[in-house]
Amino acid sequence: MAAGTAMETMTMATASEIAAEEFSAVVTKHRPQIFRFLLSSTRDPDLSETLTQECFLKAHRNWGSFRGDSSAMTWLMRIAINLQKDHWRNRRLQFWRQTQTHAVNLDEASDWLPSGERSVEQQLLAKERVRQVGEAVEGLSERQRTVFLLRYVEEMELSEIARTTGLNEGTVKAHLSRALARVRAELGGRR
């Protein structure tokens, strides 16, 4: 009887160790992508870092209940999207709090474009275009922005976006279409 209990305790300890190792691997693998999505969405590195940490904290707490129906990435991205929504909602409600954000302006954000083998003129033009895309993305609704970033920055498939956002594929396509039209109009209008 005692031997059985010891065995069970050992098995449980081993299982939790395995789970911790698994989760650690998941964090290492997916943290850059989650951070990148939040950064592109908020343009605030500090906020993105905080939300990324909250995302993994929440994931860690619920890791036991993750059944693997969707990929870990989809699950984590869904948590990140919800955290971001909650953050903005709380921000709106707590109107008396300092409204200062550390969002980087679009000019600064577009400076990160790798120069490649382009001429100076081409680089400037490309940066200007990136800035315009950034402006258009900023002007999108929350849902359109999320769908656009998941598709064109994270390069996720439509079905995966649908699973992540909880929308059906048709709705995802519609949001994407409107977002692209907005970006196209922004690029066309500034020519």
Partner: peptide, 16 residues
Amino acid sequence: AVSNFRLSVRAWSDAE
């Protein structure tokens, strides 16, 4: 433009 936007975001994210 969208490709450059993606490259820009990725470079920025990696740096951050």
